[in-house]
Each structure stands twice: as C-alpha cells, then as structure tokens.
C-alpha cells in the first residue's frame, strides 16, 4: 500500500510563517494508519513549509521545483506517474495562495481516479478503500471505492501528530526539477483582505410568514431577554419559542 500526501507551500494563518497546514498533517496521520511509510509530494518554488511536515510523521518528501506562479498539476502528475501510489491524500485547502481547493479535483480528473472529499477515517481491504466522509452537523457517509483514488481530509479527522525534531531529522527530501507550466489566465487582482461583517440573516427571514410575525412580536427578538422566576411551564414555552425563532428547532408540528 503506497500513499502519497500532497503538501502545499503553506503559511500559518496568523503568523504568516511557513507552517504545514492542519488537514495535510491530518492526512499524513490517516495515511500512517494504512502504511508505515508515508511520502509527501510538493511542487513549487521552495519546500520550506512542506519540509516541516517531516517532523509530523512524514518519512520522505518529493519536491518538484517549478517557478512561482506556475501550475503544479503537470509536475504532480509526472511525479505520481513515477511513484505509482495507490492512494493520494490532500488537505481540504492549500495552506496559502488562492486556496480554491480545486487541485485535488483536477488531479483526480486528469488521472481518471475517483475522488472523495472530507475524509475523517480510512480503511483498506483487498484493494478496496473505505472512506468515512464528514458532512455538516456531524453527519457521516461511507464510501467504498476501488483504488487508486484521491481523497481529501476534513478538519474533524483525528488530530495530527505534534512536531518531533527527531522524526524531522530522519526525514528525507528528494528534489527534482518539475515541469514548468505557466498559467494562461491572467492573475487576479489582489488587495489586502478587509473582513466584511458577516450578514447573519435573521432566522425569521425566509422562514414562513407566521414565524416572521411571531419573531417580530417577541419582545426584543433574540437578544438579552431575561425572565425572572417564571413557572416551569412558562419557562419551557419561552425556551421552545426562542429555539424556533432562531431556527434551531423545527416548527412545532401542530401549528
């Protein structure tokens, strides 16, 4: 069983320092459950962040050097061709750059392999991979597919191993020149990001008219209401009404 983990040239979201990204490290962790030796693959101008993954359980890193701003896909395809892994794992989004999360899909398309997103657990039995996929609100879906395949990893997967200098020192890096692939589309205009207020639409908006009416007639709507010493029944009703107003409970069937 040969597993390759795709590593991006990630930056720490707060400090901006080169730092492997969490889901990629979690991918290494999942891969180590399937095979003892896990290799990583990075295509890009330098592999500083990817190299950091060696301290988190990666045994070997293949680095394909390409100029900045080039498309890593051809280099990755070539490397996958020569490494011939059974399974390619990737993080959910790269740890830097455009972070579209598109690369694993393009890779799977180019390879003709199936892709499953957001894995939290993996198991292999006789060439068949079982993937447990995380869905919103804790739901889970089980996929069974024939290898080879591409799988991306969800943040709810088991936590990554912490950094260990001893492992990092033992890790090997294989470097080779990648395939230059300048992008033909024009680069997007970039500006410093300015967080915009999240528009948290009122739960009432878009819900049924009756609920909107009720939401509007409730004292101040959801926001700092205090009921002192209500009867248990009053309290229960107030809580249920509130939970409905904020959309957490489904409307009562009887109304």
């Amino acid at each position: 069983m040969k597993t390759l983990v795709l590593l991006s040239d990630a930056r720490h979201p707060v400090s901006g320092r080169p730092a492997p990204t969490a889901t990629e490290l979690q991918a290494i962790n999942l891969a180590r459950g399937l095979a003892d030796e896990v290799s990583g693959l990075h295509a890009g101008p330098d592999a500083e962040a990817a190299r950091g993954a060696l301290g988190h359980g990666l045994a070997r890193l293949e680095h394909r050097e390409i100029p900045a701003g080039h498309d890593p896909l051809p280099s990755l395809l070539a490397a996958i061709g020569s490494e011939a892994p059974d399974l390619v794992l990737a993080g959910r989004r790269a740890g830097a750059g455009a972070q579209t999360g598109l690369l694993p899909y393009r890779l799977a398309e180019a390879l003709g392999w199936p892709i499953v997103a957001d894995a939290v657990a993996l198991a292999v039995d006789g060439g068949v991979l079982e993937v447990i996929q995380a869905l919103p609100k804790g739901a889970r879906r089980r996929w069974r597919l024939r290898l080879p395949a591409v799988v991306t990893v969800h943040p709810a997967a088991p936590a990554a191993a912490s950094f260990a200098l001893g492992t990092a020192r033992k890790g090997q890096v294989g470097a080779a020149i990648g395939i230059p692939a300048p992008l033909d589309e024009p680069a997007m205009e970039e500006r410093p990001y300015r967080p915009r207020p999240r528009l948290i639409a009122s739960a009432a908006a878009g819900a049924g008219a009756a609920e909107r009416l009720r939401a509007a007639t409730q004292a101040a709507g959801p926001g700092g209401r205090v009921m002192v010493d209500p009867s248990p029944e009053e309290a229960a009703q107030a809580i249920l009404d509130h939970l409905r107003a904020i959309g957490v409970l489904k409307p009562a069937s009887g109304r």
Binding site: G223, G224, A235, A236, L240
Partner: peptide
C-alpha cells in the same frame, strides 16, 4: 445568553420534555 431563564433547571427540564 440571548435568553436567560432565572429558574431551577431541575424543574424546567421536565417542563420542557412535557411541552415537547
């Protein structure tokens, strides 16, 4: 809290269950 009930949780719990 957005909604705070100043009451004994021990009594509100059965009331909630009953209401549901």
């Amino acid at each position: 809290a957005g909604l705070a009930i100043i009451a004994d949780a021990q009594q509100v719990m059965p009331a909630l269950i009953a209401a549901l």
